[in-house]
């Protein structure tokens, strides 16, 4: 097993603060159009459907795997990365945690990391429907 690539310290920058406030409370905050109700990724800025304003909204945290990749650093650490589809529809880039056998459509759930230093953030874990995880 190779070492995991260090994530480092995350600092808020004034623009995505509600996302980090949500993560601190184990809630996945993302963007939703106030006018038409369409959901978007946390870093979206516009609703191309209706040109309405985007607001922060809490997503269920349930997701499905679209694609995945493993980044390798020159010093041998790895980072398991993914493109996931939130249950509400939008795609989001994220990091996988303990997903042994990734496949398209694999059910996932956002889980939150609360480091001693810096902001909390989500990672995606396998969602096993029948075990109440």
């Amino acid at each position: 097993m190779t070492a995991r690539q260090t994530i480092g310290t995350i600092r808020r920058d004034g623009r995505g603060d509600p996302f980090f406030d949500g993560a601190a409370e184990d809630r996945l905050m993302t963007r939703r159009c106030e006018a038409c109700g369409r959901w978007y990724a946390p870093d979206a800025t516009d609703c191309p459907e209706c040109a309405g304003e985007l607001a922060w909204a809490e997503a269920s945290g349930e997701a499905a795997l679209v694609s995945w990749a493993v980044a390798h650093s020159r010093t041998g650490e790895t980072a398991p990365l993914a493109l996931v589809e939130l249950a509400e529809g939008p795609w989001m880039y994220g990091r996988l945690d303990a997903v042994a056998a990734p496949r398209e459509g694999l059910p996932l759930r956002a889980s939150f990391v609360h480091p001693d230093e810096g902001e909390s953030y989500p990672v995606f874990k396998e969602r096993r429907e029948n075990r109440g995880l």
Binding site: Q5, I7, G8, T9, I10, R11, R12, D13, G14, R15, G16, F19, P42, D43, V66, S67, W68, A69, A71, A79, P80, L81, A82, L83, Y93, G94, R95, E104, G118, E119, Y121, V123
Partner: peptide
Amino acid sequence: EAAEWHGLSGLQAALGFRSVNVFYALAARR
């Protein structure tokens, strides 16, 4: 590469999305 990252775009890089290679890898895997 950085020790500290800022905001949502910084978070993405922190998690490991640190070069365009990652995005093409996701497309290729699909």
